[in-house]
């Protein structure tokens, strides 16, 4: 996944910089790792930066994280493009991450996905027109015992059915 031209343009339009309070939070994380392994803090640091910017990361924010951790910028891009929990383009207020990996698929995640798409009127990797929801297809969420599973912001919803999806979405609207 590479920043698309539009993505980069959007990223440039968003001028947000890493705040001092975010830097302080990152510094708190840094104390947990050995001095010479500052780069270990990149994952929490990116979460902090992302939370501060309505759920997504701009190139500027990633550069700020890199500079604050004193590591090469590309090393931060490598991490942020690797993990699906980081978003590099603007996202909706809520992120719906639905698992379609093996166990979930066998437990009919297809029906869950179909209902999500139908309700939200968007496809994977799209955001609703009102900017409320972004829909994501993700790999195993590690909760296979209760498949099918989706992660809504920070909450796991398990043993899903299309009806359950209606209810969950209904509560948010």
């Amino acid at each position: 996944m590479v920043a698309t031209r539009e993505g980069q343009q959007m990223a440039n339009a968003n001028k947000a910089r890493l705040s001092d309070s975010a830097k302080a939070e990152i510094d708190a994380w840094l104390t947990k790792y050995p001095q010479e392994q500052r780069r270990s803090a990149v994952i929490p640091a990116l979460h902090i930066a992302q939370d501060e910017n309505k759920g997504w990361l701009t190139t500027q924010l990633m550069d700020d994280v890199a500079d604050h951790l004193q590591i090469p910028r590309v090393s931060v891009y490598e991490v942020s493009t690797f993990y699906s929990m980081y978003d590099l383009e603007k996202v909706g207020t809520h992120k719906v991450c639905v698992c379609t990996n093996l166990s979930c698929m066998l437990s009919d995640s297809d029906a869950v996905v179909a209902r999500l798409k139908e309700k939200l009127k968007i496809d994977f990797n799209e955001t609703t027109a009102d900017g409320k929801f972004t829909l994501r297809e993700v790999e195993c969420l590690g909760a296979c015992v209760n498949a099918p599973v989706m992660l809504l912001d920070r909450t796991y919803h398990e043993k899903l059915t299309p009806e359950k999806v209606d209810k969950i979405l209904g509560e948010l609207e």
Partner: peptide
């Protein structure tokens, strides 16, 4: 760096 993951991995500068 290696940008992305799995089948979408690309080598580049991002």
């Amino acid at each position: 760096g290696s940008i992305g993951r799995g089948e979408s991995t690309e080598i580049g500068t991002y």
